[in-house]
Design a protein around this nucleic acid. Sequence first.
DNA 1: AATGAATGAGGATTCATTCAT
DNA 2: GATGAATGAATCCTCATTCAT
Lengths: 198, 198, 198, 198
Amino acid sequence: MPKIGMKPIRREALVNAAIFEIGRVGTLDVTVSQIAKQAGVSSALAHHYMGGKDEIFVAAMRHILTIYRLEIQGALALSTTPRERVEAIIRSSFSKQNFRPDIVSAWLNFYVKANASAPTKRLLTVYHKRILSNLTYSLRPLVGDNAPKIASGIAAMIDGFYLQLALKNKPTNKDTLVHLIIEYLDMSIERNAIKNDI
Amino acid sequence: MPKIGMKPIRREALVNAAIFEIGRVGTLDVTVSQIAKQAGVSSALAHHYMGGKDEIFVAAMRHILTIYRLEIQGALALSTTPRERVEAIIRSSFSKQNFRPDIVSAWLNFYVKANASAPTKRLLTVYHKRILSNLTYSLRPLVGDNAPKIASGIAAMIDGFYLQLALKNKPTNKDTLVHLIIEYLDMSIERNAIKNDI
Amino acid sequence: MPKIGMKPIRREALVNAAIFEIGRVGTLDVTVSQIAKQAGVSSALAHHYMGGKDEIFVAAMRHILTIYRLEIQGALALSTTPRERVEAIIRSSFSKQNFRPDIVSAWLNFYVKANASAPTKRLLTVYHKRILSNLTYSLRPLVGDNAPKIASGIAAMIDGFYLQLALKNKPTNKDTLVHLIIEYLDMSIERNAIKNDI
Amino acid sequence: MPKIGMKPIRREALVNAAIFEIGRVGTLDVTVSQIAKQAGVSSALAHHYMGGKDEIFVAAMRHILTIYRLEIQGALALSTTPRERVEAIIRSSFSKQNFRPDIVSAWLNFYVKANASAPTKRLLTVYHKRILSNLTYSLRPLVGDNAPKIASGIAAMIDGFYLQLALKNKPTNKDTLVHLIIEYLDMSIERNAIKNDI
DNA sequence: AATGAATGAGGATTCATTCAT
DNA sequence: GATGAATGAATCCTCATTCAT
């Protein structure tokens, strides 16, 4: 049984602390010291284990995306029909885990910052393509060749609601948002079905 | 001939420079010196006319919102039917002016930063409410009591596409996006119309 | 009748403004702009007429000393006996004019700053020597060879009270201070007279 | 052996450096960098340990006052009669420690600056009251109800001599000054004693 | 494994001063 | 005679990062 080093422990603590602090401040204007303190370690240690501020951010982004991915995968595993799969992706985006204010805040900050950070950009691009691909794949049996378009529309709605949430203080009802998107999905299926019939 | 004051000239130049620089860097991590240099003045002058970095940002945000508002107002003035009005708002959001990469980038950055800046938040909240109110008002004759919901969906799609655009380098075809949103609009009207019929 | 230029008018206004502002702030940390605004002119004009910030300060110091000197001269002119002359100097130091809070504040600031400003130092040294010389000259008939010592003591008391005044907010009763110094004078004369008798 | 913290060491060095630099320049127009360099550290470290420029100044003032207080306390401990106590206070004010040119310079600068700095003002007010209280208490057995007045006169003389010293380059003979003040004390006692006799 | 100590680099801001009009 | 316009030079302060222990 190999003795487990402190590295993974510290890294996890620091990543969580980073997300927490970004959520608290609402911005990426967070100092390494703040993050380290929140993680209960010295800033020197943060550098030691994470390499630097940018790496902390990338790790945090990666962490958020991983959570997201796992949650979607789990939901997909329980889905059988294409319709269920699409709904699973939508619902996962507003799951308890992904919907935490600090997660949303960090997410958006990284999203925007991606413009100026190559690694973050890569990460997000990969994630975005995967989501779109997942959506498109599941949508194709339902809407045929319109799948890419509608997948893009659903993704936009999800992102858009995230963005709006960052602006509001009052906790929004997730169900309302989910229903709205699913309505869009239903209408798209319906319209397409009709067209296909003809 | 009264000697014209430089203040408005400089302020405009600085605001434009700020937007340009934010777009160039992709982040609000822009120094006053960079903005000033881009505007062709010293950083001291930037402070003199703008008051400080935060004020520059707020002025830039205000500027963007004003452009937006004027463009929507202009488009609304040319619209007669409710349907046209809704479309006008959607199209305005992707007009040449509002769609400039640097504008979109600055916009998103401010959007996210609003979390940590009271004045920016106020500004955005006002703007957001106005758009929603406009949309809802025009939608009501078309979809009845579902107007708020659908307005919210349209707004989310607009914001979501903006967000996605920040991530892509390749120029996106605006028409595709506009069509997608209008399709959502059409489907919503259609479905609602059916319900009303019954 | 030569047309009088603006120079003396502006200079006087600026010097008064400088004293006022120093008194208001309590420190020499006053900007040229503040002084200029208080004088009702632009800061550029202040430089034009005064030459620079240091020159403004020197002129202000000179102004204060001139007021002081004139007041003492006037009081001395009305005095006939040595005793009266000494009292005149003491009283003049606490006259309405010299005792204005802003004057005292400016005075002390310059006094301390003299350490770092050659012109101010010269000015103060000259003034100080003159006061001491005046005091000593008038004291000699009263206390003989102890005149320099006692002159120095009286001067110290005057300066010391000024210093203390800068620290207090509540307006101090000048008479109390004057009496205290005159008491010192009286005792010195008395003691010396006795000694001389023997 | 616990690793000793650098904080107290650095703070002391910085406070001493501040006093030194103020004395050298003759003004509070000293940059943090100058002080830091004189202390042998970076300006960043100065901020780290002291908090900021104002805190440096307050700490320096506090340091000077502490030296002063301790010296007076020590001298008072060796005194038995009221007369000795008063003399002890006077002599302490001109002790080798308190009489260093840079100390005097810093002292005066703070004294004047107190007008514009609440913490400094508090500090000085407390100190001033203590000195006066000490003097008054010891004087009462000697001069009765005139104690407050005479205490105030002695304090003024001390402060006044300090002020004058800031203006002179040549080292002044402390003994002369001390004698002068003590003479004032003696005369006051004598006169009062006579009055009491009657 | 962990941290206190330390700093270089950089950024916002202020201000005396100059100049063209 | 007067000023708005403009800036270079400082200065305070912060922070990511390094290093010795």
